Simulated assay, not measured.
Amino acid sequence: MRAERDELAVAVRVWRRMSEQLVDERATARSPVVQVARRAVWTATMIGCGSSGSCEVV
């Protein structure tokens, strides 16, 4: 019984750590500025492409 409780405690700690990492990754992924060749550039988000091949960019 104790071994199962210890395994569950480890699993909970891992889950919490992973969820914190995902929050951090999502926050940085939303950043509109990234570095390319040591220069800051704005990112563009693709809205979607129509059947005509035209794409909207925000």
Results as ranks from 00 to 15, higher is better:
residue 1 M to I: 13
residue 1 M to E: 15
residue 2 R to G: 08
residue 2 R to F: 03
residue 2 R to K: 08
residue 3 A to D: 06
residue 4 E to K: 12
residue 4 E to T: 10
residue 4 E to N: 14
residue 4 E to S: 12
residue 5 R to C: 12
residue 5 R to T: 10
residue 6 D to M: 14
residue 6 D to Y: 05
residue 6 D to W: 01
residue 7 E to N: 09
residue 7 E to Q: 09
residue 7 E to K: 11
residue 8 L to M: 06
residue 8 L to H: 02
residue 8 L to W: 03
residue 8 L to A: 15
residue 8 L to Q: 06
residue 8 L to G: 04
residue 10 V to C: 04
residue 10 V to T: 15
residue 10 V to D: 10
residue 11 A to N: 00
residue 11 A to P: 03
residue 11 A to T: 05
residue 11 A to Y: 02
residue 12 V to F: 08
residue 12 V to W: 01
residue 13 R to A: 15
residue 14 V to L: 10
residue 14 V to P: 00
residue 15 W to A: 14
residue 15 W to C: 15
residue 15 W to E: 14
residue 16 R to M: 11
residue 16 R to A: 04
residue 17 R to T: 15
residue 18 M to Q: 08
residue 18 M to T: 13
residue 19 S to Q: 12
residue 20 E to P: 02
residue 20 E to C: 11
residue 20 E to M: 09
residue 20 E to K: 07
residue 20 E to I: 09
residue 21 Q to Y: 06
residue 21 Q to M: 13
residue 22 L to A: 13
residue 22 L to W: 06
residue 23 V to R: 10
residue 23 V to G: 11
residue 24 D to Q: 13
residue 24 D to W: 01
residue 24 D to T: 12
residue 25 E to Y: 00
residue 26 R to W: 00
residue 26 R to N: 09
residue 27 A to N: 04
residue 27 A to M: 08
residue 28 T to D: 14
residue 28 T to R: 09
residue 29 A to D: 11
residue 29 A to C: 05
residue 30 R to A: 15
residue 30 R to W: 03
residue 31 S to K: 07
residue 31 S to R: 08
residue 31 S to E: 09
residue 31 S to I: 10
residue 32 P to I: 03
residue 32 P to Q: 02
residue 33 V to N: 01
residue 33 V to F: 04
residue 35 Q to V: 13
residue 35 Q to I: 11
residue 35 Q to D: 06
residue 36 V to W: 00
residue 36 V to M: 07
residue 37 A to W: 01
residue 37 A to I: 11
residue 38 R to M: 11
residue 38 R to H: 09
residue 39 R to T: 14
residue 39 R to M: 06
residue 40 A to D: 14
residue 40 A to V: 05
residue 41 V to N: 07
residue 42 W to P: 09
residue 42 W to T: 14
residue 43 T to N: 05
residue 43 T to S: 05
residue 43 T to P: 01
residue 44 A to K: 01
residue 44 A to R: 08
residue 44 A to H: 11
residue 44 A to S: 11
residue 44 A to P: 05
residue 45 T to P: 00
residue 46 M to E: 06
residue 47 I to V: 08
residue 47 I to D: 03
residue 48 G to Q: 03
residue 48 G to V: 03
residue 48 G to F: 06
residue 48 G to I: 02
residue 49 C to K: 05
residue 49 C to E: 12
residue 50 G to C: 10
residue 51 S to W: 04
residue 51 S to Y: 06
residue 51 S to I: 05
residue 51 S to Q: 12
residue 52 S to K: 08
residue 52 S to V: 14
residue 53 G to I: 10
residue 53 G to R: 04
residue 54 S to W: 04
residue 54 S to G: 14
residue 54 S to D: 13
residue 55 C to Y: 04
residue 55 C to F: 02
residue 55 C to W: 04
residue 57 V to N: 02
residue 58 V to K: 03
residue 58 V to F: 00
residue 58 V to A: 01
residue 58 V to D: 04
residue 58 V to G: 04
